[in-house]
């Protein structure tokens, strides 16, 4: 998750090209986290100190941690902590960027600070992003109108969708801020209504190329056109997600039901009430979640 958010940030700043970023994202699985990057991220060492240790390692057969302790850059407790973090995923993108010579450690360090500042993230929010805490991330990046009575309901819904996208479709996912809309045109719109004590209209909206890939990932098939099976796959994903949402609500004592899903092509959504469009960016394209009362 961190890779998707931070990767997009450095792409928009022109620090990497789309092609390089795509390559780095693909290489991430084979990337091994280096202790220097972890020490910078934890705030235990700065880039100059890490570079110094790397230069010492080139001259003598000693481990990074051993040298860092000798130089009093790390305590034993700090080393133990970053050794534990070595298997965590949130810095793999940074390590992959460094391995590909696309970003130096000092630039990485600077960009992390700027990213946090640009998005006005608290330490807790930034840690949540790095640790993949979806609920806090969704709260951070998603702002509905402050006084909107349905805000919490929408946030729960989007958090669950975010988790289900990671679980069933694509782990490289990020969202951007919700946009209030009253109309929208789209090549494909898959809609399902949640009925009961609280009513909600939910739609997955997007172009055919992205949604065909989306359908293929959910059904574990290769689709080339938006045929009946591909449409069924997207409709079933929406149904599954909404079903899990109704289970969560049922556990809170709110009984809800679902209508049959519908797929509309080349359609224009027009609503009397405000709908929200939340863009979801995946590794293979973008779709929108549209929700409203």
């Amino acid at each position: 998750m961190f890779s998707a958010f931070f990767g997009n940030y450095i792409l928009n700043k022109g620090l990497v090209s789309a092609e390089d970023l795509s390559k780095v994202l693909k290489n991430q699985k084979e990337t091994r986290l280096k202790l220097g990057v972890l020490a910078i991220n934890a705030g235990f060492m700065n880039a100059i100190q890490v570079q110094e240790i790397h230069e010492l390692q080139a001259k003598m057969d000693k481990r990074f941690g051993e040298l860092a302790i000798e130089k009093n850059y790390l305590s034993k407790e700090q080393l133990d902590l970053i050794l534990k973090q070595q298997k965590s995923e949130h810095l793999i993108l940074a390590q992959a960027l460094i391995d590909e010579n696309l970003m130096s450690m000092s630039t990485f360090e600077k960009e992390l600070v700027e990213y946090k500042s640009t998005h006005s993230l608290t330490d807790e929010q930034f840690d949540a992003l790095k640790d993949g805490n979806v609920d806090i991330v969704v709260n951070t990046f998603l702002s509905f109108e402050e006084d909107h009575e349905m805000s919490n309901y929408y946030r729960d819904y989007v958090s669950l969708l975010f988790k289900n996208i990671i679980r069933f479709i694509d782990s490289d996912v990020r969202i951007e801020a919700a946009e209030a809309i009253s109309s929208m045109q789209s090549p494909y719109m898959f809609t399902q209504k949640i009925t009961g004590e609280t009513q909600l209209v939910t739609s997955i909206v997007g172009d055919s190329e992205t949604l065909i890939t989306f359908a293929g990932k959910y059904a574990d098939e290769t689709f080339t056109t938006m045929d009946a099976y591909a449409k069924d796959s997207i409709g079933e994903f929406l149904n599954l997600h909404n079903g899990l949402f109704t289970v969560n609500m049922s556990n809170r004592g709110i009984e809800l039901d679902l209508t049959v899903q519908a797929c509309q092509e080349n359609t224009t959504l027009k609503a009397d009430k405000v709908f929200y469009r939340i863009p979801f960016y995946l590794s293979f394209g973008e779709f929108d979640l549209v929700i409203g009362l």
């Binding site: 599954l240 079903g243 109704t246 049922s250 009984e255 039901d257 679902l258």
Partner: peptide, 25 residues
């Protein structure tokens, strides 16, 4: 089987004679 795992659905199915209930996925 159902996506909607509400208590009312479960109750109705068991009353009619279902032996069990499985939440999707």
């Amino acid at each position: 089987l159902s996506s909607v795992g509400t208590k009312s659905n479960l109750k109705k199915a068991l009353e009619v004679g279902a032996v069990d209930f499985l939440q999707k996925p």
